[in-house]
Design a protein around this nucleic acid. Structure first.
Lengths: 204, 204
DNA sequence: TAACCCATGTAAACGGTTACATGATTTC
DNA sequence: GAAATCATGTAACCGTTTACATGGGTTA
């Protein structure tokens, strides 16, 4: 959602995602794309085709500024830095009310019509996603353990970006755990029914 | 995602959401909007501005047909019915592979920058969302209990739409449970830190 | 009489992905 | 010699929301 701001300035969610990364370190558009992949990728993402124009807009609104860095061996790059105005806007946005948006989930949409599918194929689909979310869960839990070991006391400081990173990672962990659990529950129901059918084919 | 189909026919996720509802009963565009609100609203939704054109497209592709029902006291309506072709397409789509899309969540995005916010305001925000998701959880659990009592044996039949509805509701329950848990965890961390600060202000 | 429900549609604007475009360097 | 990496940008397209548009009936 684009937030109304004094006069005609406005920043949308993607803008705040970029500002959230730039509040931690100076980055180029190319780096922002990659950072979003690992840092924020669990709950926000953007293609470079969206990032470059958004950076230009943020600069036009005075939220960021850039410095051209010339490189040998590599193309030159624009390194962006958040401005005091950008930092202020970001801080205000954080605690502004969020109107909940619908989470669109194609797999759940498929589950809604699964009564029309072959049970064996449905079992394969949900089993596959169970594995997928368990893999992600394991990856996130590893990162979490690393953060706890490496960042220790910072995770108790409310004004530390590390605490904030840890908080978003925790959401990722809980999300993957719940999603894997649902897939497992559903796959279990399907395979239990299939086994009963094998033992007593006249009931299928 | 729009699925490639023989020649130039194609149906996107919204189309399959509508087909999933029409596979259970004949409905008008207006009714589809409302049904989506309660039945599918937890993981898909659409405005009427999107539904009416999509129904026309589905009809053009032979997935649905409509009958004009004249009414006294009320505007006439078009009641849509799924065709055999639509039913076949829906059944095939269910077990086709899903490429996972990023879940965009503004509240988690805010958590990522919460180190810039006033702790009291952050606590209020996450506490509010904790209540919101607990309310939804309670509502879903009520519906689940009703389904178990009312639909009983159907919930074990893989070919029953009631089983499918129950499966999607279960996802809703697990989602709200996990989300509320995260909000509670985060709000708890914030308030614990605030209490310590009150007892020893020099550490704030 | 004002607000709300029923019922269907279109248009403008925004958000996001994919493809087009360029070009040097490094790795296989 | 082909493919991948670094680096930035634009254009076309699709999906979604919000606003515009109409109009009869019911409820407060």
């Amino acid at each position: 959602m684009r937030q109304e701001r004094s006069g005609k300035l406005s920043v949308n969610s993607l803008g705040f995602a970029l500002l959230g990364l730039l509040a931690r370190e100076r980055l180029s558009g190319y780096d922002l794309k990659r950072r979003m992949g690992r840092e924020v990728g669990n709950f926000w993402s953007a293609s470079h085709g969206q990032i470059y124009p958004e950076l230009a807009r943020l600069e036009g609104d005075g939220m960021v500024s850039h410095e051209l860095v010339e490189q040998r061996d590599r193309p030159d790059k624009k390194v962006y830095e958040i401005t005091p105005a950008g930092l202020a806007a970001l801080g205000e946005w954080v605690t502004a009310p969020v109107e909940p948006r619908v989470t669109r989930d194609e797999l759940v949409l498929k589950a809604y019509s699964m009564w029309l599918a072959k049970p064996e194929e449905a079992l394969a689909l949900f089993g596959e996603h169970e594995r997928l979310h368990e893999e992600r869960l394991a990856r996130y839990e590893e990162i979490g353990a690393w953060m706890e070991a490496e960042w220790g006391d910072d995770l108790d400081r409310l004004d530390s970006p590390r605490f904030a990173s840890y908080a978003t990672l925790m959401r990722g962990i809980m999300h993957e755990r719940g999603y894997a659990e649902w897939c497992r529950w559903l796959a279990g129901r399907i395979s239990a029914r299939l086994e009963r059918r094998e033992r007593a084919p006249e009931n299928g």
